[in-house]
């Protein structure tokens, strides 16, 4: 791969905190190598801002390997930028060319308030998991792992759902700010495994109730979430979430009257 250097114009959202209004700030950055990752380009910008005694741009990031789910930029009109199945930290500057203007915004969702600049508060996802995204098994209660064979296909499908990194790109991409891909992935994973069966009914109902409470929108099947998901989580998970909800709400007799 040939390397090249480029000069870019960045339009970056700046917002002091959740109480203030934000605005765009334009930066020119030069000598950006095509080998850099997108966040390394931001590192370069921030180094310069520090040297100019200005506040660097705040953004969430941690593992920089595309697995922790911390990074969360809306780059050039798409969550995590132009590459498919790629987190912001794995997006490389090869995706851009000399002279490009890149617009960078935070995730925008009522349920993800902006903390500062490009950082948002995604604790709503934690609260949805608290509502039911678990198997109630205390430590020490488990039986031998091989006592319950699981159809390989189902185990693989459960894994595909479980691969969600909780970054929130699905919410950011969805025109309705819906979290149904995130919720669907967790509900599906546990619904497909026998371990999740005892709480199957309560799990989906509680998680959906919490999802609504957080202010996320509803799915209108545009499937933008799947297209933008850095882990390629399938919208089949949303169908399964719907299925689980209908099953729990219409077929189950469990619960209080």
């Amino acid at each position: 791969m040939e390397h090249y250097n480029m000069n870019l114009t960045l339009k970056v959202w700046r917002q002091k905190n959740s109480d203030t209004k934000g605005h765009f700030e334009t930066f020119k950055v030069g000598d950006i190598s095509s080998e850099m990752s997108f966040l390394e380009m931001f590192d370069v910008l921030n180094e310069r801002l520090v040297s100019e005694n200005k506040e660097p741009v705040a953004f969430d990031h941690d593992c920089r390997e595309g697995i922790c789910g911390a990074c969360s930029m809306y780059i050039d009109g798409e969550p995590h930028g132009p590459w498919a199945k790629t987190t912001t930290c794995q997006l490389h500057m090869r995706a851009f060319k000399d002279g490009d203007t890149i617009v960078v915004e935070p995730w925008r969702s009522k349920a993800f308030p902006v903390i500062k600049d490009l950082m948002v508060d995604r604790s709503a996802f934690d609260r949805i998991i608290q509502a039911g995204g678990f198997v109630s098994v205390n430590t020490g209660n488990a039986v031998d792992a091989n006592s319950l064979p699981i159809v390989r296909y189902k185990a693989e499908e459960a894994f595909n759902s479980a691969a969600c990194i909780g970054c929130g790109a699905c919410v950011a991409a969805c025109k309705n700010g819906s979290a149904m891909l995130f919720v669907g992935a967790k509900v599906s994973q546990l619904a497909m495994l026998p371990q999740g069966d005892p709480e199957r009914t309560t799990r989906v109902l509680n998680m959906v109730a919490q999802m609504d409470k957080e202010g996320f929108g509803n799915c209108s099947n545009t499937y933008a979430c799947e297209a933008e998901c850095p882990k390629g989580i399938s919208v089949a998970n949303i169908a399964r979430l719907n299925h689980e909800y209908l099953r729990a709400g219409l077929c189950s007799e469990e619960g209080d009257l």
Binding site: F134, V135, A142, A145, N146, L148, P149, A158, Q195
Partner: peptide
């Protein structure tokens, strides 16, 4: 060994063989 049991009980989707075992 207990760790694997515990994790499987939590719904951790470990790789499996065609027979359904780990």
């Amino acid at each position: 060994a207990n760790i694997i049991d515990q994790c499987v009980a939590q719904g951790v989707p470990f790789a499996r063989e065609y027979g359904g075992l780990l």
